[in-house]
């Protein structure tokens, strides 16, 4: 039996909102030691999502037997919207489940809402991602990155990122003209989360589809900072750290023809 209780429903609500536009059907793997993990690839096989929710992400977590919960994220989103952000959220499944029970409890009032969601058999292949060495790593406020990705998409369907020792340059060029945003490394002593950190082994020049970047920045509601790891010509890693876990996106770059 699986029983995972979150201190507030908002984490799960934000997670599903962050990924449901990229992938529709997902297998949630549950185990006592690893908590809940998920790997899913979008239909175009350009963007991969990897989620880890350690048992420590939960207020209470037990999983007697390893389980795979095949869920339609559109349906899960509908159910999660029934609960308030501050509600306790508990996910419950039997050992050979046909359904996932989603329970919301209002912390102040005596109200309990219960939903049963049908599970599905989802055939999906899993890609093995080894730890990669990257040429550079950038950590910046996730809202700053979200703004650049959203703004620059209005100019072009591609976003070029150039990283040098102390700055990151985002460039877009499209039918109406061109644009660039340069951000420089700096340390904010008052609020460390506002700092911009660049670790560089080698300068990088990569281009990504603006559509995918706009899907990725939907996760900026989950973490105040995002870490972007880039290497020329190989997939980039975008990581949003969670309390006791992470949401990672791997994105294949675009190539010059």
């Amino acid at each position: 039996m699986l029983e995972g209780k979150f201190e507030s429903a908002s984490l799960m609500k934000r997670l599903v909102e962050a990924i449901k536009d990229s992938v529709k059907l997902c297998n949630f793997n549950c185990s006592q030691t690893k908590g809940i993990t998920l790997q899913a690839i979008d239909d175009s096989r350009v963007l991969l999502i990897s989620l880890k929710l350690d048992p420590g992400c939960f207020e209470g977590f037990r999983c007697d037997k390893n389980l795979v919960l095949g869920l339609d994220l559109e349906s899960l989103s509908k159910v999660l919207k029934q609960g308030n952000n501050e509600d306790y959220l508990t996910l419950i499944a039997e050992d050979a489940p046909d359904n996932l029970l989603v329970v919301f409890e209002d912390p102040k009032k005596d109200r309990i809402s219960e939903f049963s969601l049908k599970l599905m058999d989802i055939d999906s292949d899993v890609l093995s991602i080894e730890d990669m060495d990257h040429d550079c790593s950038i950590t910046l406020p996730s809202s700053d990155f979200a703004k650049v990705a959203r703004d620059m998409r209005t100019l072009s369907e591609s976003l070029q990122i150039l990283v040098t020792k102390d700055s990151v340059k985002f460039m877009a060029s499209g039918p109406i003209g061109t644009g660039s945003v340069i951000i420089k490394a700096h340390t904010d002593l008052k609020d460390g989360k506002e700092s911009i950190k660049i670790d560089l082994n080698k300068s990088v020049n990569v281009t990504f589809g603006a559509k995918y970047l706009n899907d990725i920045v939907k996760a900026s509601t989950l973490a105040e900072t995002v870490t972007i790891k880039l290497t020329n010509k190989i997939p980039a890693l975008f990581e949003f750290k969670l309390q006791g876990g992470y949401l990672r996106y791997y994105l294949a770059p675009k190539f010059d023809e």
Binding site: V46, S128, G209, K254, F255, D256
Partner: peptide
């Protein structure tokens, strides 16, 4: 804007 690469070229199915 270039050709979009796919992840399959980089990661193997396990």
């Amino acid at each position: 804007g270039g050709t979009q690469g796919r992840l399959d070229g980089f990661f193997k199915v396990s």
